[in-house]
Design a binder for these strands. Structure first.
Length: 127
DNA sequence: TCCTTGACTCAGA
DNA sequence: CTCTGAGCCAAGG
């Protein structure tokens, strides 16, 4: 299911850059990655967040996968125990969750600098 | 080949 | 706030 290796690597590269105590969303990450060659732009926009999700499902253990949450600021449910672990690790990093299991994206969402993006051929949403 | 199933998101109800 | 359905793509049964 996972897109091609090149796409996943781009996802992991971005996730690795998220600082402790900060988070990014699936869609937020996807918005930085250009559509693969031959992919229709409008179609890509509709599926890219899921592609990131699929990529995360098979991510290597050495990256801070726990810093990726969904657009509602909640931990996406999935089979296995990693969802619970994710919340625990985030709390260790100082992330607070409200009674609905939601964190404050306005404060915690992390955006790479333009310079960082440009150096890696990624998209700058503010451009 | 057809159908289901996803670590998604957004707009409606 | 919660719950659906739609939109879209690729793998696997």
């Amino acid at each position: 299911m996972g897109r091609d290796r090149r796409y996943r690597e781009r996802v992991y590269q971005i996730v690795r850059a998220i600082p402790p105590g900060r988070v990014m969303t699936y869609g937020g990450i996807a918005a930085l990655i250009p559509p693969p060659r031959g992919t229709d732009w409008t179609g890509y926009v509709r599926v890219r967040a899921r592609w990131v999700g699929y990529s995360m499902a098979e991510c290597p253990d050495d990256l801070p996968w726990h810093r990726v949450v969904n657009a509602q600021g909640r931990i996406s449910p999935r089979p296995g125990l990693s969802a619970r672990l994710q919340r625990a690790v985030l709390r260790e990093e100082g992330v607070r969750f409200d009674r609905n299991g939601r964190l404050d994206l306005d404060r915690l969402f992390w955006r790479p600098s333009r310079r960082w993006l440009r150096a890696r051929g990624l998209l700058d949403p503010a451009a």
